[in-house]
Structures are given as C-alpha cells and as structure tokens.
Amino acid sequence: MSDAHAGPLRHHFATLQQQKESATLGMWVFIAQEIMFFGGLFGTYAIYRYLYYAAFEDASHHLDWKLGAINTGVLICSSLTMALAVHAAAVGKGKQIAAWIAATILLGSIFLGVKVVEYKEKFDHHLVPGPKFHYVPHAEAARAADPEIDRHSQIYFSLYFMMTGLHALHMIIGIPLLAWMGWRGWRGEFSALYHSPIEITGLYWHFVDIVWIFLFPLLYLIGHH
C-alpha cells in the first residue's frame, strides 16, 4: 500500500535501510541495558547461592519443576509464533501478522496464568517472604546442613519473587505492545519495506524469553537430583 517514495521514510533519514538499521540498533542498546538491569539480580543470586548453597537447593524443591518446564515450552512456542509474525511482516502479509501475534499473546497469557497458579500456591504454603513466612525443609538433613535455613530460604524466595516478578512484569508490558502491533498489522500499516515496529517488538519478546531460559534451571532445577 505504501510506495517507496512517500510513506514510511521519516525526513531525518536518508534511506529506508538507514532508518531500519537505526531502529534495530536503538532497540539493541535498550536490550543491552536490560541485560544489566536483570544482571543485578543474577549477580545477587550468584552471591547468595554461593553463600547459602544447601538452603537454596532445599528451597528449590518447593517449586514445581513440571510447571516451570511447561512454562519454558510455552514461552519457546511464543518465540516461534513471534518469529513467524515478523516473517509475515517481511513478506508483507498483514492479516498473517495479526494471526501470529494473536497466537503469541495467547501463549504469553497461558504463561502468566501458570505463574498465577504458582504464586497462589506459595501464598498458601507461607513461602512468601515477610512476617508470615514459615519454612518447612524438604529434606530432614537440610536443617542440620544449615541451622539458619529459615532465614536463608527466605532469601531464596525473595530472589524467586523478584526475578520471576520482574520477568512477568516485562511480559505484562509486552502483551499490550503486541496487541497494538497486531492491530497495526491487521490495518495494513506494515509492508515488506517497512515493518521495523514489529521487528523490534519481536526483539523485546525474544529477550524476555531468554531471561526465562536462564531463570528456569537456576530457580527450579537446582535441587532436582
């Protein structure tokens, strides 16, 4: 619908190529910042995991690794549908963009739904840090290995809620962004020549997937064996 002369090229760029490269580069600078943002939490995790190794292993048993694995699969599926939405944009098929984005939103919502179930369970079992926190070790020997396991397991759950909570917040921000992109795709605002908004929304979504790829083994699987 848009030809190369008018339409999407903003006046401060010389060519569409330059405009697209600027958008991609800008998004990657933002993502580099996001790596550092989450990096602070991963660094904190590394320190406390090293200091309270036994408590972390024991506390990890209180998470349901099967739900974590299902959610990992759901998120990887959503990355695939997102990649296919970007592909639909690259070949200029607006209605397909909307369909793949709808699938991505659905999968993202399933992920958040599972997360709600998991959080609810933590509230029910008094595993949310705070005055009502009450820790029952999974293994009998755990308290002997670490007499202060009540305090140390609370640090594990603080990190669990901070890390998965910040990750979930990113998804909660991502879903409306996706809906907006799907709407614009449906209306035919994107073409093979111009679809940077959908491309960089895709970068954001894939980044959120990568964060979870690290959270899953570090939080759910450390006491598995």
């Binding site: 190369a4 002369h5 569409l16 190529q17 697209k20 490269e21 990649a83 592909h87 690259a90 111009y194």
Partner: peptide
C-alpha cells in the same frame, strides 16, 4: 534515486 528499501535477509 529510487530507494528499493532495506536489503533484508528474509529467514
């Protein structure tokens, strides 16, 4: 003087 658009690799 015709911008043919980004030289994109379509995966």
């Amino acid at each position: 003087a015709v911008d043919l658009g980004p030289h994109e690799h379509v995966v």
